[in-house]
Each structure stands twice: as structure tokens, then as C-alpha cells.
Design a protein around this nucleic acid. Structure first.
Lengths: 207, 207
DNA sequence: AGATATTTCCATCAACTGATGGAATCATGT
DNA sequence: ACATGATTCCATCAGTTGATGGAAATATCT
């Protein structure tokens, strides 16, 4: 019966969930094309056919990974929104930067997967994009750049995207940037947060 | 004789140069793994073996592409440096943003190829990175964030990287961002420049 | 225990990819 | 015209990849 298979993801020890975890890590580390179904199966310690039994095509598994991180990000954004309520804009920006950096530094594959999505052609067979568009308006409102979800200006959207991109890039590019700064991982996280605040806070708070 | 083959790149009509041009476009559009040597050969209208005759392994051709854009970027940075001389910091930032945006919008594959490089594992067989690290110090000096090439602080480097990343992301992510802003390509370029200036100028000019 | 359904693995397939050898073609210099 | 070297294409190879059929193993239920 299918119901059992659908609920399998709830249990992290289930085979379907274990495959998803391995796929998420490897897709995030290598991208879609440089990750083979055999690599994922090997990481779990199973045969490729078992992977296909649980997830069908490779594209379906990838879509499953994106759906999972999509939920995670949405939850994180809601947390940001909640924690931002009632504080001034400067603090709101600092909270958002700290929370998103902490989350992404502990889940670096998420940043990679989102950025990988930027490159994928729109005319591809399957739509695999993380639905970022929907969040943008919410953040713009949470940050006080707009009041109504339907009334977010192009400028406001662009500014949110710029912030969002900066965070993602510093996380995804760590292996590239950190050596040229010659600092340890912990310091890197601090420098990233500090830099983001240095750049973003004045832009949004100066009148 | 080898000298003829080495000089072949000077002439844009030479087979070696034509292959390089096609490779640059396709690698930039699809990434390394999703671009086959047959795709590149087909774009030029030749057989795969002719491609290998001129460039050897696929990795060598990719390295050739990166070397070419590396030179281009270096020249562009020098132009920025030259045009920035003698003007105040605010104008310097605006000049840098305008020049780099114009360049990258007319060569979008460059932004893609640099960002693709961020994801490539450091332990891979061949080093294929565009040498960004070297430019960072130069820009920091040109922007007045440091005076001596050896004395660029971690903070200054991080701030330059943040700027650089923002530009790259807006270019590479156009097909992703523009639909959600619902504007035409020309407006997109304007919004990007405007947003970058909005965010970056206050950060570096407020005292 | 025995029947049934689910899960896993082995063997295998067709398509694709990077790469090469060698024949055929073309260009160049004498 | 001829010889020499450079260039191009055709045929082909071995390795990898996504995917499947079917046997074997395991779990579930009565």
C-alpha cells in the first residue's frame, strides 16, 4: 500500500528518509549532474535499484530534496518574522542576519542547492526551483519595506534579493574565500556576520 | 610547428579560437559537466576529434576558457582602477558598479563561470579557479580601504568580496530574479545598478 | 507455519561520454 | 606536379550512467 511509503519520510530511520539525507548532502556538495545515483546508494550502503525502488527517477529524488529544504527555509523565515516583531529596523536586520547565517552555516548544502538552482535553465524538463519568490514579499513586509503582500515594489524586492544573495554566497563560497582570508572557520562566521551588518544596516537605516 | 598553434588564438577566425568561443558560451550556460565536447563541436560545426586535436583534453579546454576570462577581468579591473583615480569614494563606488555591471551584463557567461568555480571542490584533479584572490587587494587599494597590497585587512577583503558577489549574483541569477520582478531586461539592469549603489554607497561613505 | 506483500540485491541493458587511431583531405613549399 | 606536413572526419573503444526485470530475502498477517 502507498500510505506506508508516504509516511516513511516522517521516520528518519526509514530507508526512504536515509536516502533523502544522503542525496541532500551529495547533491548539495556536487550539484545534480556530478552526483550519481550510485554515489548516493553507496553512501547509504545499498544498491542503486533499492534507491530507485523508493524514489523512482533521479529527478524525483532531487525534487524531494528541494521540497524538504523548502519547508525548512519557510519555517526559518517564519521564525525570523516572529523574532523581529516589535523591534526597530536596525535590530530586525541584525536578528535576520544572525539567524540565517547560523542556520546556513550548519546546513551549508542548503545554500549550495539554492545557488545551483539559479543556474538551471528555465526550459528544463522538470521545474526544480526552490520557491524563493514567495518568501521575498514576506521578508519585505517583516523588514518594513512594504505593508501589503501585493504591494511590494521592484526596488524592495531587489534589495531583499541582494541581502539574501550575499548571505548565500558567503556560505557557499567558504571553501573559496576563507583560504584567501587565512582565518579559521569560527572566525570566518564572525567576519561574515560582521560584514553583512556593516554593509546592510547603513543602507536600510540611514534617512 | 607549435608556434603556429600558439599564435592561433590571436586570430578569432582560427579553428582553435572558434572552439574556445563556443566552449566559453556553453560552459558558461551549462557548467562543466553539463557541457559535452560533442555539444561544443556541434556549435562550431566540426567533429569531436577536431576539437581534441586542437585542445587536447576537455579539462584543458576548460582551463583555456578560464584563462581567457581571467585576462579580460584583469583588464577590466585595471580600467576601473584608472577611472577611479582622483575622484571621491562615492563616485569611485558608482564608477566601479557601473563598469562591472556593464561588462558582466554583456558577458553573462563570465559571471556564471566564476560562480561555477566557487562550487568546484578544492581537491579536484585540476585547479581551474579564476584567480580572484589576487584582484581583491588591488580593488581594496583602489577603493581606499587599504594603502599597501600586503596590508589589506580581513574586514576589507570580506567587504570587497561581498560587493563582488552581489554583482555576480544579480547577473547570473537574472533568469531567476527577473521573472519574479516582472520587468524587462533593460529595466533589470537599471534596478540592479540602483540597488547595488543603494546598498553599497552608504556602507562605505558614512562616517 | 504458511501465505502474502514488501523490500533488497544481482545481472543486465541502452544511451552517452571522453578519447583515440587511422584514413582522407587540404595547405604549403619546392 | 610532387612531397611534406597540418588539419579534418569516420569508426570505434572502454567506462559510466540512469534505469529495469526478476530472483532472493525479509517482513507482515492470519
Amino acid at each position: 500500500m502507498a500510505s506506508r511509503l508516504e509516511k516513511a519520510l516522517q521516520n528518519p530511520d526509514s530507508m526512504k528518509a536515509r536516502i533523502l539525507t544522503a542525496a541532500r548532502r551529495l547533491f548539495g556538495a556536487n550539484g545534480y549532474s556530478d552526483t550519481t545515483t550510485r554515489m548516493i546508494a553507496a553512501e547509504v550502503g545499498i544498491d542503486v535499484s533499492t534507491l530507485h525502488y523508493h524514489w523512482g527517477e533521479k529527478q524525483d529524488l532531487y525534487a524531494g530534496v528541494l521540497a524538504a529544504i523548502n519547508e525548512e527555509i519557510l519555517a526559518k523565515f517564519k521564525e525570523v518574522e516572529r523574532r523581529c516583531r516589535g523591534v526597530n529596523l536596525r535590530r530586525r536586520l541584525e536578528i535576520a542576519i544572525d539567524l540565517m547565517c547560523d542556520y546556513l552555516f550548519s546546513h551549508p548544502e542548503v545554500a549550495n542547492l539554492i545557488l545551483f538552482g539559479y543556474f538551471r535553465k528555465a526550459d528544463r524538463d522538470v521545474v526544480l526551483d526552490v520557491n524563493i519568490a514567495h518568501y521575498i514579499s514576506n521578508i519585505a513586509i517583516a523588514m518594513g519595506l512594504a505593508t501589503d503582500a501585493g504591494q511590494v515594489s521592484v526596488q524592495a524586492k531587489a534589495r531583499i534579493l541582494a541581502v539574501w544573495n550575499s548571505v548565500l554566497n558567503f556560505i557557499s563560497g567558504e571553501s573559496f574565500f576563507r583560504p584567501m582570508m587565512d582565518i579559521d572557520p569560527s572566525s570566518y562566521q564572525d567576519v561574515v556576520k560582521e560584514t553583512l551588518k556593516f554593509i546592510l544596516v547603513p543602507a536600510f537605516t540611514t534617512d
